[in-house]
Each structure stands twice: as structure tokens, then as C-alpha cells.
């Protein structure tokens, strides 16, 4: 039996195809303006990758902010549910999931069975999401992948006062003018983001183990900053952390299809 999980995020659509034989496709697609058409294309590509025909697909479950645009009359689930299911399958010790995506941040507390106990979201303000770091990297004229790396070389903690992405851009520019090393500025940006994400997650009560998912989990600077802010020795990071929502959706689809 073959099922699909789709995560229609603000910046990327992720698709996971699953069958009793395991995962057979992981596809990521950057959509254009037409979300519905992009989503259809993403699903088609995933089917091609897994060598499956559309009619073999038993069920589709979609999550993410754009989930209503998913093709094929899918069942819709919220992001916390999908995150919880996806992470518990990969890292069963997880009790708190922190998901930082392009346009939102989320803290989810889960049971050992992957059920959601409680969650807190930070959305619609770029300062609490990955967009903040992306924008700061641009101001520093750094590629996002270097941006995290370079923060690990920081020698001092410079404060960032601005709480808004737009104002922080000017603050970064004046720090550059004041000859502050880019590594220090980068660390300040990561610390600021981590403290906002941490504060949000504290609302659900942080219980170990804590896992980080979403695109920013690839950023070593952010991972370190978050560990520092939460005083954690270890932060679990699954493989392909940006696909956890889609995996969760696929697992839910499978569950629904067999029952």
C-alpha cells in the first residue's frame, strides 16, 4: 500500500512517499505563485521518483500553511500533529519538538506515542522565524550556509537591541560600519533568534529530549545558540530535518489507510 505525505510550507513543498517497504521518495519543490499547480507538480515528481502510479496511491495527507492547496482530495492535519508523528518515528525519545521554518517557529510537547500534549506557535512576524536569519545573512552579504558556520568563530557577545527584522537590518549595517567582526554579528543574530524561539517553547514546558527540526536545523550556528539558550547538552536532530512534517503526514496517511 502506497501513501503520500505533503508539507506545503511558506517557501517549499515537501513530499514523502511511503509504503510497507519503506520510504520511496523525498521531493522538495520551490513553488511559484500558483500554489495548487506547484503542489500537483511536486506530487507528480515524487510519484516518478518512487516509481508509483497515481492510482496506486491509497491516501494523501497534507500539512503546512498552504495545505488546502494540496492535490487529490487529501486529508488535512495541522503542523504540530505531523511534526509529532514524524519525529517520534525517527527519534522516539523526543518529548519536545522545536520546528523552525521559513516563516514560523513552533514548540510542540509530545507523548511517547507521538501525540500532541501542547504547542505554541510564533507566526506572521519574521523576527521569530528562519526569515530573520536569512535577512540578516543578506545584510552581512553572507551565504546562509556560511552564516551559521561563521558564528562559531565569534569571540565576543555583542548585543542586538532591535526585535524587528527590518530594524535589525539597520542595526547590523551600523555594526558593520563600527568594524564589528562578522562572526560576532552572526553570533548575535543567532543568539537573538534562539532566545525568541526558546521563550516561545518555554510556554509548553521543556521536557527532554528536545529535538530540532525544520530547515534551520542545518545551521550549526543556530543549533549551538539554541543549546546555549536552553542550557542543553544535546539537541536531537534527525536526518533530513526539513522533511519531518511531510514524513509525519505520510505516517498519518498510512495509519488512516490501514485502519
Amino acid at each position: 500500500m502506497v501513501v503520500a505525505g505533503m508539507d506545503l510550507g511558506a517557501k517549499a513543498i515537501k513530499v514523502v512517499i511511503l509504503s510497507e517497504k519503506g520510504v520511496s521518495a523525498k521531493v522538495k519543490l520551490f513553488p511559484d505563485l500558483d500554489m495548487a499547480q506547484s503542489a500537483r507538480k511536486a506530487l507528480e515528481e515524487a510519484l516518478v521518483q518512487s516509481g508509483t502510479e497515481l492510482h496506486e496511491l491509497k491516501r494523501i495527507v497534507a500539512t503546512g500553511t498552504g495545505r488546502s492547496a494540496a492535490p487529490g482530495k487529501p486529508a488535512l492535519v495541522t503542523e504540530p500533529l505531523a511534526d509529532a508523528k514524524g519525529i517520534i518515528a525517527l527519534l522516539p525519545l523526543t518529548r519536545t519538538v522545536i520546528d523552525v521554518g521559513a516563516e514560523e517557529g513552533r514548540g510542540v510537547k509530545i507523548t511517547p506515542q507521538g501525540e500532541v500534549v501542547d504547542f505554541a506557535v510564533n507566526e506572521k512576524c519574521a523576527a521569530g522565524s528562519g526569515a530573520f536569519m536569512e535577512s540578516m545573512a543578506r545584510s552581512l552579504e553572507l551565504k546562509i550556509e556560511d552564516f551559521g558556520e561563521i558564528s562559531l568563530k565569534a569571540t565576543q557577545a555583542v548585543p542586538m537591541n532591535a526585535q524587528c527584522t527590518v530594524f535589525a537590518e539597520s542595526e547590523v549595517v551600523s555594526l558593520i560600519h563600527a568594524n564589528t567582526p562578522k562572526s560576532d554579528i552572526s553570533r548575535a543574530v543567532h543568539d537573538a533568534t534562539a532566545s525568541r524561539i526558546a521563550a516561545m517553547t518555554r510556554r509548553v514546558g521543556i521536557e527532554k529530549e528536545v529535538a530540532l527540526i525544520g530547515g534551520v536545523a542545518y545551521n550549526p550556528g543556530f543549533v549551538e545558540a539554541l543549546k546555549r539558550t536552553l542550557s542543553l547538552e544535546t539537541l536531537l536532530i534527525p536526518d533530513h530535518p526539513d522533511f519531518i512534517g511531510a514524513l509525519g503526514a505520510a505516517l498519518i496517511a498510512y495509519e488512516q489507510a490501514v485502519n
Binding site: D118, F119, A120, N161, A162, Q163, C164, S195, R196, A199, M200, R202, R203, V204, G205
Partner: peptide, 17 residues
């Protein structure tokens, strides 16, 4: 003043809000 949402977060558990 510019970060009350974050400062007060420990006093405001998500399920109680």
C-alpha cells in the same frame, strides 16, 4: 518594552492562555 511576548512567556503556559 519591545519583547514582552517573550519575557512573559514563562508566566503564560500555552494551554492556560
Amino acid at each position: 518594552r519591545k519583547k514582552l511576548n517573550y519575557t512573559c512567556s514563562t508566566c503564560k503556559p500555552a494551554r492556560k492562555s
